[in-house]
Design a protein around this nucleic acid. Structure first.
Lengths: 356, 356
DNA sequence: GTGAAAGCGCTAACAG
DNA sequence: CTGTTAGCGCTTTCAC
């Protein structure tokens, strides 16, 4: 049943036109009479013809390939829900838009990380790349990718990068603000903040939002103790332990992502603390992790699948729009929202110290 | 800097041989003198030449593309750790073996699921496909893929399929046996088993193993109450509630995967049961979920990343070995092992009923 | 508006 | 062992 697949010439023959005309119809080219167009389309249908992407690419029509670059580490492998959701969204949109996605985990701190990305793009002739944090903020990488005549879209880049490239993300500062405001409204006054790795600029902004919320509520901005983790479950637990052992421990732990919040939660359990009675804990992202743990995590929802799909959509528009390299980069804001769940509630023990 | 990339002709010119000879060197063909080989390789290096995969594919050299088919559902989306780990392993091995992986989520119960897979393979000219459950046991799909002259490897297929196609998986029956034996040794005598969806044959075998362990320990095989979930967190909770509400509730819940075990654990927490004191719970797979929840889940480790990598390795061997379609399919057994964690321990309340 | 012709970069016979 | 010659299926000038 390995019947030879029909080629563009078969379609041309059946519809009685030249090969070039079929090509025009297929690619929405100009100068095609409506009559011919329908005839060709009919032939395509009866033959069940589909273009050979390799041949098209060779002839100069573009490879139809997009790349998704994920930060991979020995410790924090890209098998997280965060990454998966982004990928799934991108995959679905690719299917709809007729592109293929090449997913590539790249060790975040390897010396040749740029080469790995550039090699993929060159060798496979990718037409667009989606950069996830922290690659999203690597300006040199972005420039080098562009030198390859390849479009770039960044997921959750920092403010500087937003002016440099198409990007998608939530308003992280607002997200941080909102979750902190939620905790403040519950009566919390002393906070611990578990930050992510330094290069992840958008996550850094979550802390700025937390501070703003505190200021707005006349709290001393120093009433939040900040320690840096690396986004992993393990680091969340480690940092939580440190913060809890400090003088005047916080009544609420705000974590820069769900995984670290889950780690903090485990430590709380190990210490037989009541969550949220003794300690409230919040995450960020609203990945399935936040529903799997007990009690479920209050967190900030980030529409990751939508963001992944948007990234592809942006790339597809650039590629068809013919707008080419021409500046005018936009930051596409995705909607975030606080998801209140049982891990955050009114502090029990320390109510007396509340200033409210 | 969009310098034209060097072609095979450039290499041929620089090394003073014919284009065909360069091709031979590049593809490890026979009949090449050592002298010429090194000369060509040198030219390749100085020119920083890399073959154009699209051109190679057009000319008949194979696309270098493999596909990974994942079951996607509205309820159970393929963003689980299970799927991610498999993909990550496959991705890494692809990088090493020089293949590209096309990941494709396919709605498991869509009417045209076969078409979706076959279309991808035909259109992209994939040379190999990795089928995950429940596609791994879809014999018709396997045959139709083969008709396209494409190799297949199944992840964790049932016994029948193992004779039909290359495959990778753990000994699920033994896994089920071992985790049950672990619980029995802890003193448990009454079990609940939360199974997965019916089509997932390899997961079904876990129950057979549980029954065997019970028989071996002179327990009535009916002392295990079985209910079917769908591998999701949510279903695990639902089924757990049902089992717990039955007459003579079990002291241990054996779940066919980690997600359902996490769901069961949440229900236990909601009911203020002490785990493992009042109820022991075990999972299967040893995904990160089992470490994220509290208490951590005792489970059966499955080396998913290794399995994903093995799948690619098998495909690569078939493709280079030239062995072609020629039968001789093998089931590659991956090592499983029981991972004892805090969610499973001696039953407290029901010790009196233990026969030990 | 449409057709004819010229490759894209590579592999695969087939000669030598 | 190595070179020559055909294409693979498509897009793209460039004529008409």
């Amino acid at each position: 049943m390995t019947t030879k697949r029909p080629t563009i010439d078969d379609v041309a023959r059946l519809s009685g036109v030249a090969r070039a005309t079929v090509s025009r119809v297929l690619n929405g080219g100009p100068n095609v009479s409506e009559k011919v167009r329908t005839a060709v389309l009919a032939a395509v249908k009866t033959l069940n013809y589909r273009v050979n992407p390799q041949a098209r690419s060779l002839a100069g029509g573009g490879s139809g390939l997009l790349a998704l670059i994920l930060a991979s580490d020995l410790e924090a492998e890209p098998n997280s829900f965060y990454t998966s959701a982004l990928e799934l969204g991108a995959l679905r949109e690719c299917l709809a838009a007729g592109y293929q996605l090449l997913t590539r985990p790249v060790p975040q701190q390897s010396a040749d990380r740029h080469r790995q990305v550039l090699d993929l793009i060159e060798t496979q002739r990718c037409q667009g790349v989606i950069l996830t944090p922290p690659f999203a903020d690597d300006h040199e990488l972005i420039e080098r990718i562009r030198a390859l005549d390849c479009h770039v879209v960044a997921i959750s880049p920092g403010p500087d990068t937003q002016a440099l490239v198409d990007s998608v993300g939530v308003d992280d500062e607002a997200g941080g603000h909102d979750i902190a405001a939620h905790l403040i409204s519950l009566g919390h006054r002393r906070f611990g903040f578990i930050a992510g790795i330094a290069g992840h600029l958008s996550a850094e902004r979550r802390l700025l939002g937390v501070r703003r919320a505190m200021t707005e509520h006349d709290l001393d901005p120093d009433a939040v103790v900040v320690e840096r983790g690396d986004f992993t479950f393990r680091s969340g637990g480690l940092i939580a332990a440190t913060l809890l052992d400090g003088p005047l421990p916080p009544t609420a732990l705000i974590c820069a992502n769900d995984d670290m919040a889950a780690g903090a939660l485990s430590v709380a359990h190990a210490r037989r603390l009541d969550v949220p009675g003794d300690l409230s804990i919040t995450g960020f992202d609203d990945t399935p992790v936040s529903e799997i743990v007990w009690p479920p995590l209050a967190t900030v929802h980030q529409p990751l699948k939508v963001m992944g799909a948007d990234a592809v959509r942006i790339l597809a528009r650039r590629l068809s729009g013919g707008a080419g390299q021409g500046g005018d980069w936009r930051f596409h804001v995705a909607e975030h929202r606080v998801v209140p769940r049982a891990s955050a509630d009114r502090p029990r023990v320390h109510l007396a110290t509340a200033t409210a």
